[in-house]
Design a protein around this nucleic acid. Structure first.
Length: 520
RNA sequence: GGCGCUAUCGUCUAGGGGUUAGGACGUGAGAUUCUCAAUCUUAAAACACGGGUUCGAUUCCCGUUAGCGCUACCA
């Protein structure tokens, strides 16, 4: 086992948005494969025809690629130049809906070998057994009533048109497996039911919305077959599958296939310690992207949610660094609460490392009408935007905060600014009136561009003329220029405004701002 | 009810039979700045409980409690 090439898979159902829990599972699989030079496969579990939708598959693939996770086998590979219709790999198809033939043949084999049997029990009978078990405080397992039906009896019932499911015989020996994150796990045979492999064709008395497609093999059965046939060596998945695993182990054994290693990842919880769900707000990878989280930040955060660096100290990792550092053995078994604050911190970190030009592209659309279309923008405008981004980006957690924060650069409503309570307080001071009058004098007399030097000179002069300094001096001026009593330093803001005013985007220059605010 | 998984600061985690139980986020304080943010410094903050085993347990074992998962002919 140690000598063979490691093969892992990510097997999502295309029934909704890729959420962060699944994204972490995908990431851990990918990291494990890449570190060991193995294969990472993508398999689409679309057996639930009711809920599976092609658009979700498309979205899911997009999200995976955005995170920087590619795959060696599956629909395409996600690598540049490889179209997704172009399925790759020797073990396809990689969509379960296209593998029905395989499952059917294998079921016939199991039946023929007597390892599986036809179960004619009705839902009512099964329900009764279940209720009795609960009443007697016993494990609820199927009694196995149909297990020893004679061949003749079974034939007769089939001939009578009675619907049947196919069940696997569970032997008397305990069903154990090895879990890389939890160690050995064992289930007593008495606690595991003969699992249904294939649903019956007809199900009366069961509401149709609760019913899987008739005659279709069930999830536990098909994952096992797929994993075995695709020669998966390590099954890394969410811990909600732990209880399913003994059944799957029994299936491997029935076919005589080697049982892989397992690694069950703990659940991601919300702040209320309940399983993270839509109820907790944004949980999909797509929504994080929309809010302006960078993929490297999400990846970094997800890696840290359930895993820690060997040195116990390092917190920031690139994907490449993770590939080198990540060890499945170090993954924690306990559930982890998703902490937006830490994600934000990591995102801020990533934003600081990101190039201005990349950030400009990411942020462009959020400026809406204020900017021309990205493709139509002149180089001067792009260069100026880079300057703007460099000024504002270090102070935001998420990129979607940037445009609102920088909006005032494009102009603001002086009257609305005067009405703000914090501003009113500042402007009410006598000194503020003097400062603004002095500022207006200078702005009026000014004919050239206001350079930071000129601006600094003004401020020094006003300081003397109005006999104020510090807050009393700067705050009124800041409000006149930006509409706000806080913001970036003037040394960088003034040139941004003056250069922006030259761009033909309707951005008021310093002089116009003063005139509009104070009046001429 | 049954079966299973889990348990170190508020959160993510490191550690491990003898430690001042380490780091990070967040929080408090200070520095800096016209201001906010950023940044730097600094502080507070944890081994769920009860039994064993042991010279010694937070660490190993058992139990309790709590949380979560599964308990479907869902995936």
């Amino acid at each position: 086992m140690t000598s063979e090439r490691v093969r892992v898979r990510f097997a999502p159902s295309p029934t909704g948005m890729l959420h962060v829990g699944n994204a972490r599972t995908a990431l851990y699989n990918w990291l494990f494969a890449r570190r060991l030079g193995g294969d990472f496969l993508l398999r689409i579990e679309d057996t639930d025809v009711e809920r599976s939708e092609p658009r979700y598959e498309k979205q899911l693939i997009e999200d995976l690629l955005w995170l920087g996770l590619d795959w060696d086998e599956g629909p395409g590979t996600g690598r540049p130049g490889d179209p997704l219709e172009n399925e790759r790999g020797r073990f396809g198809p990689y969509r379960q809906s296209e593998r029905q033939q395989i499952y059917a043949e294998l079921t016939g084999k199991l039946l023929a070998e007597g390892k599986a049997y036809r179960c004619f029990c009705t839902p009512e009978e099964l329900m009764a057994e279940h209720q009795q078990a609960v009443r007697e405080h016993k494990p609820q397992v199927y009694s196995g009533r149909c297990r020893n039906l004679s061949a003749a009896e079974a034939e007769q019932r089939m001939a009578a048109g009675l619907p049947f499911a196919v069940r696997l015989k569970i032997g008397p020996e305990p069903l154990g497996f090895h879990d890389i994150v939890r160690g050995p796990v064992e289930f007593a045979a008495e606690t595991v039911s003969d699992p249904v492999l294939v649903r019956s064709e007809v199900r009366s008395g069961v509401p149709s919305h609760q019913q899987g497609a008739p005659g279709m093999p069930v999830y536990n059965y098909v994952v096992t077959i797929d994993d075995a046939l695709m020669q998966i060596t390590h099954v890394i998945r969410g811990d909600d599958h732990i209880s399913n695993t003994p059944k799957q182990v029994a299936i491997y054994k029935a076919f005589g296939w080697p049982v892989p290693e397992f690694a069950h990842l703990s659940t991601i919880l919300g702040a209320d310690r309940e399983r993270l769900s839509k109820r907790h707000g944004a949980t999909s990878v797509a929504s994080f992207r929309e809010m302006g989280y960078l993929p490297e930040a999400l990846v970094n955060y997800l890696a840290l949610l359930g895993w820690g660096a060997e040195d116990g100290k390092t917190e920031t990792f690139t994907l490449e660094e993770l590939t080198r550092a990540f060890k499945l053995e170090r993954v924690t078994p306990s559930p982890a609460v998703f902490d937006l604050d830490k994600l934000n911190w990591l995102n801020r970190h990533s934003i600081k490392l990101a190039s201005a030009s990349r950030l400009v592209d990411l942020v462009w659309a959020s400026f809406g009408e204020r900017l021309p279309a990205r493709e139509a923008a002149s180089e001067a405008v792009v260069a100026w935007m880079e300057q703007l981004v460099e000024l504002f980006a270090p102070s935001v957690d998420k990129l979607d905060e940037l445009a609102p924060k920088a909006a005032f650069v494009f102009g603001f409503d002086p009257d609305a600014a005067r009405m703000l309570p914090e501003n009113q307080e500042v402007l009410a001071a006598d000194s503020a009136r003097i400062v603004l009058a002095e500022l207006a004098d200078r702005a009026r007399a000014n004919s050239a561009n206001v350079t930071p030097q000129v601006f600094k000179t003004w401020m020094n002069e006003i300081k003397v003329a109005a006999a104020v300094k510090g807050k009393e001096l700067f705050h009124p001026v800041r409000i006149a220029l930006t509409g706000m009593h806080s913001g970036p330093e003037f040394d960088r803001l003034v040139p941004l405004i003056e250069e922006g005013a030259e761009l033909g985007l309707g951005i008021p220059c310093v002089q116009q701002r003063v005139e509009r605010f104070v009046g001429v």
